[in-house]
């Protein structure tokens, strides 16, 4: 099996303090991987590292595909909901790679946008300003944009926070569809039931990897307890890390 991406002794962090510490391993092409761990475990940091928004402090990430082939859904709070833009235009942004700065949006593209909006169940919302959407509708719109991005590697950062069960189950169906299309999906999640039910593989992170493999073997009570203990507080007087130095 070929790897979609490989971490080589990867350390990511802020201001020299590691948030992901010495991560090794690879994600196979077409994998459906859940990243779990306590708050502050470095899950979001890991996604930012993969997408290239955060340069590694040490080690590296090898990607088998170009960064253009990655779709990244950050946490919802980072979007300016007061901006005067309608749902249709927000979804259409997913065509950036295709249309870019000046490329046209023709009939074919409009059909794709319409189909994406339909498959997340937002028909009739095309001309609504994004400020008028509920949290669940907004997340549906962002999933429609992901659909249009047509990426081989899809990164989702806590995509189901504060959504109702119907919305979560609809969006999980989309993720299953991507999995069926042999795309690689990495999702940061908190709900262990969802992970057990829908994700074959899991990575338990507590700055350092605690366990990584098939979900039932990762989500054991011992591992979860270990993860909680390892996620100690930020230490402003930490020494320089000597692991693998020299």
């Amino acid at each position: 099996m070929t790897a979609a991406l490989r971490f080589r002794d990867l350390t990511l962090g802020y201001d020299r303090h590691p948030a992901v510490h010495h991560l090794d391993g690879s994600v196979a092409e077409g994998a459906l991987l859940a990243v779990i761990g306590p708050n502050g475990a470095g899950k979001t940091t890991l996604l930012k590292g993969i997408v290239g928004m955060l340069p590694p402090l040490a080690g590296g990430i090898e990607l088998a595909l170009s960064r253009q082939d990655i779709a990244y859904l950050p946490q919802i709070a980072e979007i300016d909901r007061s901006f005067p833009i309608i749902v249709y235009d927000l979804v259409a942004m997913g065509l950036w790679r295709h249309s870019g700065l000046t490329g046209g949006i023709g009939r074919h593209e409009r059909e794709r946008i319409g189909a994406a909006i339909a498959s997340v169940g937002l028909e009739g919302f095309e001309n609504r300003a994004i400020g008028t959407l509920s949290g669940g509708q907004m997340q549906r719109a962002l999933f429609a944009r992901l659909l249009l991005q047509d990426a081989q590697l899809i990164l989702l950062d806590e995509p189901f926070i504060s959504l109702d069960t119907k919305t979560v189950s609809d969006l999980l169906d989309l993720i299953r569809r991507w999995h069926g299309e042999k795309r690689t999906v990495i999702a940061v999640l908190h709900d262990l039931e969802t992970v057990r039910a829908r994700f074959p593989a899991a990575l338990l992170l507590a700055r350092q990897p605690v366990a990584w493999g098939e979900t039932p073997e990762v989500l054991t009570p011992e591992n979860l307890l270990k993860a909680r203990r390892m996620c100690e507080a930020f230490d402003s007087t930490a020494e320089v890390c000597e692991v693998h130095a020299a």
């Binding site: 290239g52 990655i70 779709a71 990244y72 950050p74 980072e78 300016d80 950036w96 000046t102």
Partner: peptide, 20 residues
Amino acid sequence: LLWRPLVLECVDPNFLRSVS
């Protein structure tokens, strides 16, 4: 010419950074 990236930068700067 700048319209699309400008709009993107305003609404969702992280998305713009991830695609371009």
